[in-house]
Design a protein around this nucleic acid. Structure first.
Length: 573
RNA sequence: UGGGGCGUCGCCAAGUGGUAAGGCACCUGGUUUUGGUCCAGGCAUUCCGAGGUUCGAAUCCUUGCGCCCCAGCCA
């Protein structure tokens, strides 16, 4: 792993504490984790937290326990054939690899369907499971509520022989969907609803993307997951908080099977708080709704917190890993500030992205005392003094240039360092210019600024006493490369999406989350930029040539993140 | 009126009886041809509240309060 953005001295959390404890007590000699996504959607940054945790632990402990067999599996939790697809598996694998991780073994829960079936028969034989023929609504009714105990199913007392016969016929396809289910015989009055005779198998006459038409009964998550873990020898099964109630059932399954199945490990489940970010949505349902409702341009829309979206937006894997490390792992529900993510990408790109000049909202400047026929090739460093990297390019300087509209003000406040009538600014890597006149259109808007330049301020030959506070970026009009630039901002207007179950959160979408600029002027050197190239557009932010739409000669850039802007901040007050 | 969890600075988060780490954000000053970076400094007498135990409590006890999760043949 090549994490350079943040190298925490010692990252510890309650899960690593547990692992250390288990190791010291001799309960385990190796650590095996797994990342178990359901292949029914795309990964988002919340998954990245889990990926960093599970794969990160394997990496760390493999170093501490070489040759121990410490590892992390990728396992697709594919127990519901209705929602799952190979397409998603490919995307998930790509995202994990892109994040910088590799799995020690790729598995599917469906690899174990035959074993699971065998174990189910064992459970029946042991009197721990039965075929229940209650209807869906009846099962719900018998389950009781959180405040009232459930009632036992009338089918609970079926004989082992009858149960086995029925279960085999379920497998053979003799029954329709919903006619029977296999249930664990646990405790209908358990205050933990998950323990009220949990469903283990349901009938689904649906082809599975891995097993095809082999099965028409499929195991439920609560049954399949602990078994998959145990078969793979998982030692620490890490999941999110909403599964806390399921842990008792997880243990029930393992306990009832471990002697019979001779599992290589007795896995235990530990839960941590999932990641939430403000000003965006993280749930599969909402992400799906945004994509299918065409509110964004697909799963990799840079407005989305999906891994694919962040990648296209220009986030680096290092920055996402650093972010996951920085937020920690704990059990308190929390919502991390987007500013923390933004810090991580700025921090990473600061020393990775070469600086270039680009004018996003151009304003023409004519330098009246500069000969129209002249062109000067000025040296411009790709790196600021504080980044220890070499590299320069030439930027052409001419009589007509573009500057940023925001860098000119008719009536500026005292602390405005940029261009204004009668005021002087430094052009980055070039001369100082002074505004002598302005040209307005019929509406009174400034369409052109006239300036004079001071030949004495040529870079490298500055007059000693020259104090010019402001430096602005610019691009030679004659040499500028036209480009489209997509300015991205937070997805939502509000910190938290409205909680409603309906599509209410759609009203909270920030209409300016994407702003497309079509008249941008880039410095000449950017004409040949390749998709995926990242730059800092000086004074503005970090940008990446879009992986899909940018072409050499016709660049399209995405804004990854703005630079911090203390001027803008002070102006808001 | 059930059960399982959680409550430490605006946002994360260490801390597990010895007198509140760190990061983000924010504020101040310095450096600076990016109002960026970097550097220096500031930012919880207090840990959801109230009692109690103790020489000493965020950490132990009691008792309130608040928030999250569980009644899919989803995961």
């Amino acid at each position: 792993m090549n994490s350079s953005a943040v190298a925490p001295a010692k990252s510890s959390d309650f899960i690593r504490d547990i692992i250390n404890d288990d190791l010291e007590a001799g309960r385990h000699k190796k650590v095996i984790t797994r990342f178990p996504p359901e292949p029914n959607g795309f990964l988002h940054i919340g998954h990245a937290k889990s990926i960093c945790l599970n794969f990160g632990i394997a990496l760390e402990y493999r170093e501490k326990l070489p040759d121990s067999g410490t590892r992390c599996h990728l396992r697709f939790d594919d127990t519901d054939p209705i929602k799952e697809d190979t397409l998603f598996e490919d995307g998930i694998q790509e995202d994990i690899r892109w994040l910088g991780f590799d799995w020690d073994g790729l598995y599917h829960a469906s690899d174990y369907f035959e074993k699971m079936y065998e174990y189910a028969e064992h459970l029946i034989t042991a009197g721990k499971a039965y075929v229940c023929s209650l209807s869906d609504p009846e099962i719900k009714e018998y389950r009781g509520s959180v405040t009232t105990p459930g009632r036992e199913s009338p089918y609970r007392t079926r004989s082992v022989e009858e149960n086995i016969d029925l279960f085999r016929r379920m497998r053979a396809g003799e029954f329709k969907d919903g006619e029977h289910v296999l249930r664990g015989k646990a405790d209908m009055s358990n205050p933990n609803m998950k323990m009220r005779d949990p469903l283990l198998y349901r009938i689904r006459h649906t082809e599975h993307h891995m097993t095809g038409a082999t099965w028409c009964i499929y195991p439920m998550y609560d049954y399949a997951h602990p078994i998959s873990d145990a078969i793979e020898g998982i030692t620490h099964s890490i999941c999110t908080l909403e599964f806390e109630n399921n842990r008792e059932l997880y243990d029930w399954v393992v306990d009832n099977l471990i002697d019979y199945a001779k599992f290589p490990s007795c896995p235990h489940q530990y839960e941590f708080a999932r990641l939430n970010l403000n000003y965006t949505v993280m749930s599969k349902r909402r992400l799906l709704e945004l994509v299918e409702g065409k509110h964004v341009r697909g799963w990799d829309d840079p407005r989305l917190p999906t891994i694919a979206g962040l990648r296209r937006r220009g986030y680096t894997p290092e920055s996402i890993r650093a972010f996951c490390t920085s937020v920690g792992v704990a059990k308190a529900n929390s919502t991390v500030d987007m500013a923390q993510l933004e810090f991580c990408i700025r921090d990473d790109l600061n020393h990775k992205a070469p600086r270039v000049l680009a004018v996003l909202k151009p304003l023409k400047v004519v330098i009246e005392n500069y000969p129209d026929t002249d062109v000067e090739e000025l040296d411009a460093s790709y790196w600021p003094h504080d980044v220890p990297k070499e590299g320069t390019r030439k930027v052409p300087f001419c009589r007509e240039i573009y500057i940023e509209q925001d860098d000119f003000m008719l009536e500026p406040p005292k602390d405005y360092f940029r261009l204004a009538p009668g005021k002087e600014v430094r052009l980055r890597y070039a001369y100082c210019i002074t505004c002598t006149d302005i040209i307005k259109d019929s509406n009174g808007a400034v369409v052109e600024v006239r300036c004079t330049y001071d030949p004495d301020t040529r870079p490298g030959s500055n007059p000693v006493n020259r104090k010019v506070k402001g430096t602005i970026h610019w691009v030679s009009a004659r040499h500028a490369v036209d480009a489209e630039v997509r300015l991205y901002d937070r997805l939502l207007l509000e910190e938290a999406a409205p909680a409603g179950k309906d599509s209410e959160f759609l009203h909270s979408i920030n209409p300016n989350a994407l702003q497309v600029l079509n008249n941008c002027k880039l410095e000449r050197s950017l004409a040949t930029s390749q998709p995926g190239d990242r730059f800092q557009f000086e004074r503005q932010g970090y940008f990446i040539a879009d992986s899909k739409d940018s072409k050499p000669g016709a660049p399209v850039f995405n804004r990854i993140v703005t630079l911090k802007d203390s001027w803008a901040r002070s102006q808001k007050k």
